[in-house]
Structure formats: structure tokens, C-alpha cells
Design a protein around this nucleic acid. Structure first.
Length: 421
RNA sequence: GGAGGGGUGGCCGAGCGGUUAAAGGCACCAGACUGUAAAUCUGGCCUCGUAUGAGUACACAGGUUCGAAUCCUGUCCCCUCCA
């Protein structure tokens, strides 16, 4: 492996973050010279269509974190302006146009995530969050076309993968979508001008957009810009990572409790442990090597470390410890950790008694009565770790253990029922 | 604006008057095996009912028929080609 001069690129290379770089040596030299010439700023764009981001964005977030650790300045660009148009790529869903309030709300939610990973502030390496509405909102169409449009040829745009794929497959591509790449290119240039940002990073699908931005910056503003992309992160069986039964694995607590977040990492397949440790934790590489070489049941220890580290970073040490403790209690001792999903019910409920099936639904462990009955029939339902055989059984005060009841659906899904006021 | 094609269960996709709660695949859930892994096997996968069963359901609204996802009419939406 050729050794790089800058810490940042060295780390990224070792940890398999890099898919492509526009000018590795040039960028390396520039970053290595930071001590004399000051840190460089780099940005990654994020969509703000929701109040949270999911693990799919985590690679990018980790890159910004490393960037900051290496003394450079991370810029988080939120697509406030582009979100207002609505991203046309997800064309199966009718795109909803977000109001300004929605967008502001979403941005606030996303900000709380970045607060965990980055340190914001005015110091040279302090992170900043920028909204592209800042410049996009004021764009005049004609001026924009004259200034920016002249730098793009349709011939060239047609050669981009994102466009070509659509055309080859004879799928429609709207004009709006076609313009997206120009707007993204414009973002890069504006960030270069306003924030002296010289590097854009992103997923491998962003390569074309990044390159466009570099060229626009050079031609229109004389900027020297760089681009870097990450590979698409897939699990060992070839799926895009980050999807679970209930959808995305969200990064913020409101969308996904820390316990579930921890569990997501804990349930990583063997074959992915090393990869994930490299990308999503900051453990030293020799430690990662040791952990990923564990075999058989021992690799579970590596998964626990992965879960702890990942959760700590995203949700804080306290949340990670609590999740770990609960998992230990629940899985290793068959008890009930306090961090399990908990549902409070009124005391009166057990005076008269409640049907087990209804109780499971109450606890969120089943969507319909039929589903819970099936679960019981198949032997997957447990109440205080005792298999439930009778779907007609009533649960009364006598089932309470220390004021709570532990319900389990299968081996992994558990919930606590507690008496509330 | 003109011509044509289409909207089926979470997704893909068969069905094209009765034997269709709707083939098949994917995803998902549970069980077995294990290590809270993967792979594999078994069962399940609209709602209500222990179940025979009942109720809803094939874009929406009507109609034809003993009987419709299947035929007809209207509405909405999507796509392709032409202008």
C-alpha cells in the first residue's frame, strides 16, 4: 500500500472508505500541507426529506468525523433548497412537496444527529451546517442559465451514468431531474466561494455530480476542487445495508430507540463484522483485525464491541451501556433488562384480567389478533419466559413479577408491561 | 391534442366470467439447527373466529349476469408512441 502523507487519506484508505478520488496525490499534498496552510474544508450533502437520517448515511458521517479528527473542517450541506422541489428519483412514491416549516423541522432533527458525531463551532476545525436554500432560493432562472448553463453541454450530460441508465432502459427522465446535477454542481461551486470548501465527498453514485461541480468551479470561478467517493456499502449477502423488518435503521432516538439500534449492530452477520468495525467504529486497526479473526461463537464478542462502539458514538455512552446491559440480562440470563421497550398499563387492567392475545397487541408485539394467535400456535409467544399455549388465557395480577410482565415474541423481540398510574 | 397499453395482496407478478382469499417469486414472522450469525429445513403470512365458517379485498363509482379481479360505462392515475 502506498503510504499517504495526510492522516485523513491514510485512515480512509486503511479503513476502506474510498472508492474513487479525483486526484489522490494532489489532495494528499494539500491536506498534508494543512499545518502550514491551514486546514481544508470538505462537505457532504444530505437530503432533508425526513427528521432523521439512517445508517445508509453513516459512512458519510463517519468520514466527516475523521476529517474533523484530522484537524480539518467538515461542512454539512443540507438540501433545503433542493428539497423544496422534491427529489424526483424516488418515483414510485408520489413526491410530497414539503413546506418551509417541514424543512426547518427536519433540519433541526438532523442537526441533533450531527451534534453527536461532530463538534460545531468557530474554531478552524469546527463543523458548520449550511443550507443550500441560502443561494438557491435567490436564483434567477435566466441569470442562472447564462452564468451556469453555458458550462454544461447536453452531449456531456447525456454520458453520465445516471442519465444514460435511464435512457438505455427507456425510462423517463424529467427535465427537473436532469437539472439536478447542475444544481448540485452549483452547490459545490458556491461552497467553494463562500466557505473556501475544496473537497466534496459522497457515495459512489454521486461521482458524476461531484465531477461536474469541480469543473464548474474551475471554469466559472477558477477554483481548484477535489472529489472523493465511498463505495456502496452492502452486507455480505449483497443487500444494501440498513434495512430491517420495520424499515430503516434511524440514527436518532425518536425514530429508533437506542436498544434497537444496539441490536441492529449486534445482529450483524459474521462476514460483515470486520468491514463494519472498520467503517463504523474508531477502534485501532490491529484491534479490528484481532476481532474479525475470531471464529465460531467467539465472534459474538466482536459483535458486542461493534454494537457498543457504534451506539456510543451515535447515542452516547450511557445509552450504549444501558442497551448492552439489557441485552446481557435478556439474552444471557433470560431476565428482563430495563431498557427493553416498555408499555405502561393501568392497574385496573389486571384486576379483571386481560386476554393474552390482547396483551401482546398492547405491547406492540403483534399487529392483529390473528398474528398473535399464530405466534402462540407456533410456540413463539412467551410470558415471563413461559411458553403461552392457550390463546384464551387471561392474564391477571398473579402474573406480575416485581410489578412487571415480560412478554416475548420469538427469541429476539421482547417487551415489558408495567403498571402505570 | 391524437393513438395505444396499463392500474391485482408489503413489493414483483400470474389470472382474463364460476373449482380464486386470488399461482409463483421476493420480503417478512415463528419453529428446528446454532452462536441473538449465515446457510438449510418446516410452518405461517387480509380481518374476526378454537374451528367448520364469516366479513372485507384485485385504482374509484356504477352497470350486465344466478355468479365478476375477469364483460360494459364513467372517473382518477400511470406508461409508450405520434404531433
Amino acid at each position: 500500500m502506498t503510504s499517504l502523507k495526510s492522516d485523513f487519506l491514510q485512515i480512509l484508505t486503511e479503513r476502506d472508505f474510498i472508492h474513487q478520488v479525483t486526484d489522490l496525490e494532489g489532495l494528499d499534498a494539500k491536506m498534508a500541507a494543512a499545518e502550514k496552510e491551514g486546514p481544508i474544508s470538505a462537505y457532504i450533502g444530505f437530503d432533508c426529506t425526513g427528521t432523521s437520517l439512517h445508517v445508509g448515511s453513516l459512512v458519510q458521517i463517519m468520514m466527516l468525523r475523521w476529517l474533523q479528527k484530522c484537524g480539518h473542517k467538515p461542512i454539512v450541506l443540507l438540501g433545503g433548497g433542493t428539497t423544496r422541489i422534491g427529489d424526483p428519483s424516488g418515483k414510485d412514491e408520489s413526491r410530497k412537496l414539503l413546506t418551509d416549516d417541514d424543512i426547518a423541522h427536519n433540519m433541526a432533527g438532523i442537526r441533533t444527529i450531527f451534534d453527536q458525531f461532530l463538534s460545531f463551532g468557530d474554531e478552524p476545525s469546527g463543523a458548520t451546517m449550511v443550507n443550500n436554500a441560502e443561494w438557491l432560493d435567490q436564483l434567477g432562472y435566466i441569470d442562472f442559465l447564462r452564468e451556469i448553463g453555458t458550462h454544461f453541454t447536453i452531449n456531456r450530460m447525456l454520458t453520465f451514468d445516471s442519465v444514460k441508465l435511464r435512457l438505455d432502459r427507456e425510462q423517463p427522465l424529467t427535465f427537473l431531474e436532469f437539472n439536478y446535477m447542475i444544481l448540485q454542481a452549483y452547490d459545490f461551486m458556491e461552497l467553494g466561494k463562500r466557505y473556501n470548501c475544496s473537497l466534496q465527498m459522497g457515495g459512489s453514485d454521486q461521482w458524476g455530480n461531484i465531477v461536474n461541480g469541480m469543473e464548474l468551479g474551475r471554469r466559472s470561478a477558477g477554483l481548484s476542487l477535489f472529489g472523493l467517493t465511498t463505495p456502496l456499502i452492502t452486507t455480505a449477502d449483497g443487500k444494501k445495508m440498513g434495512k430491517t423488518a420495520d424499515g430503516a435503521v434511524w440514527l436518532n432516538e425518536e425514530s429508533l430507540p437506542a436498544y434497537d439500534y444496539w441490536q441492529f449492530w449486534r445482529n450483524t452477520q459474521d462476514a460483515d463484522v470486520g468491514k463494519f468495525l472498520r467503517l463504523f467504529t474508531e477502534l485501532p486497526l490491529d484491534e479490528v483485525k484481532r476481532l474479525e479473526s475470531l471464529e465460531g461463537a467467539e465472534i459474538n464478542d466482536a459483535k458486542i464491541i461493534l454494537a457498543n462502539e457504534a451506539t456510543k458514538m451515535c447515542r452516547g455512552a450511557g445509552a450504549a451501556d444501558a442497551a448492552h446491559a439489557t441485552a446481557k440480562e435478556t439474552f444471557e440470563r433470560g431476565g428482563a433488562g430495563s431498557d427493553l421497550p416498555t408499555v405502561a398499563v393501568s392497574a385496573g387492567l389486571f384486576e379483571t384480567g386481560i386476554n393474552v392475545v390482547d396483551l401482546f397487541i398492547e405491547a406492540g408485539l403483534g399487529a392483529s389478533k390473528g398474528e398473535v394467535r399464530r405466534l402462540i400456535k407456533q410456540g413463539g409467544a412467551k410470558l415471563n419466559d413461559v411458553k403461552v399455549d392457550d390463546a384464551e388465557a387471561m392474564v391477571t395480577n398473579s402474573a406480575l413479577e416485581g410489578g412487571q410482565i415480560k412478554l416475548s415474541a420469538g427469541k429476539k423481540r421482547h417487551a415489558l408491561i408495567k403498571i402505570g398510574e
